[in-house]
């Protein structure tokens, strides 16, 4: 467990699960705020993945802001690059980037591009945004670390629609073939993709069977149950095979008017009223509202 990455101002939260829930709440609020300021962006997947991000950065991974150049740090690759607002938000919460600067999303001269770019932000580890490549990059990292006798672990997060890319299954085959026990893939399985549900666009099920058949250790969990996420990540670290955690999530989770409503799946533009309403639903205080929306 990583004890280094603790936010400066969460003295109210005491136990780990409460702290991570608070981190996830911040991730959701910050992602909505940055997408509101940007005038475009993908809020649905940021909401569905927030609890996973909080557990990865707040507890599981051995990585912290001052150690971002440490060769033994764990690596995280956001294969579903369009969830960048959530990655920037969790980075802001744990001190990898500035909370205010990272609200400047998708703007010219901002390092917080629409999809993560490693030359702009070294802590995002690699550049993603074209679906399917991140898991391959993570595999290359895991093989490369092992070749150098480096025990660091590698984590990657994929979207469900992303699993329709053939490269993902090339990658899945190679990770099992090379016995990459240090690799953990987390799937944000919110069942909805850009145009419609996975079932309408291209069926994924039986998804767990597919990964099992490819030689992976497979766990299925509720991706909004922090305790379950922590247990699954811990187990994934103990397998000889590469591990996949299929996290069942709700697109738009935490914002009632967004949850499972198709309009909020793709890149959208928030009105001020919608942003206010979303942050209110997430329990934002007056100060948080001001800090996030009036910049």
């Amino acid at each position: 467990m990583n004890m280094h990455a603790q936010p400066a101002n969460d003295t109210a939260a005491t136990n780990l699960e409460d702290r991570l829930a608070e981190a996830a709440r911040f991730v959701r609020m910050h992602a909505i705020a940055s997408i509101y300021h940007a005038g475009s962006g993908h809020p649905g997947g940021a909401m569905s993945s927030a609890d996973l991000f909080a557990c990865l950065y707040g507890a599981e991974m051995n990585v912290w802001p001052r150690g971002i150049a440490d060769p033994t740090r764990d690596r995280f690759v956001l294969s579903k690059g369009h969830a960048a607002p959530a990655l920037y938000a969790v980075g802001a919460y744990y001190g990898f980037c500035d909370r205010k600067e990272s609200l400047n999303l998708r703007k010219l001269h901002s390092p917080f591009q629409g999809h993560p770019h490693v030359l702009d932000l070294p802590w995002v580890e690699t550049s993603t945004g074209s679906l399917g490549q991140g898991i391959s990059v993570a595999i290359g990292m895991a093989i490369g670390l092992r070749l150098q006798n480096n025990p660091a672990r590698v984590y990657t997060m994929l979207g469900d629609g992303e699993l329709q890319e053939g490269e993902v299954w090339e990658a899945a085959m190679s990770a099992a073939h090379h016995k990459l026990g240090t690799l953990t893939a987390v799937i944000d399985y919110n069942k909805l993709q850009s145009d419609a549900s996975n079932d309408v666009i291209m069926r994924l099920e039986p998804l767990a069977d597919k990964w099992r058949a490819f030689g992976w250790d497979v766990q299925e969990i509720d991706g909004h149950d922090i305790a379950a996420i922590l247990v699954a990540l811990r187990h994934a670290g103990e397998t000889a095979e590469p591990s996949v955690i299929i996290a069942h999530t709700i697109k738009g989770k935490g914002v009632p008017y967004m949850e499972n409503i198709p309009t909020w799946h793709g890149s959208v533009k928030f009105t001020r009223q919608q942003a206010d309403e979303a942050l209110a639903a997430l329990g934002a205080s007056a100060d948080e509202m001001k800090e996030l929306l009036d910049v």
Partner: peptide
Amino acid sequence: AEQNMMAAAGGMAAVGL
């Protein structure tokens, strides 16, 4: 599986190879 190989090369380079 050339697509996976090409992107994996990026990962290997990222960790110093």
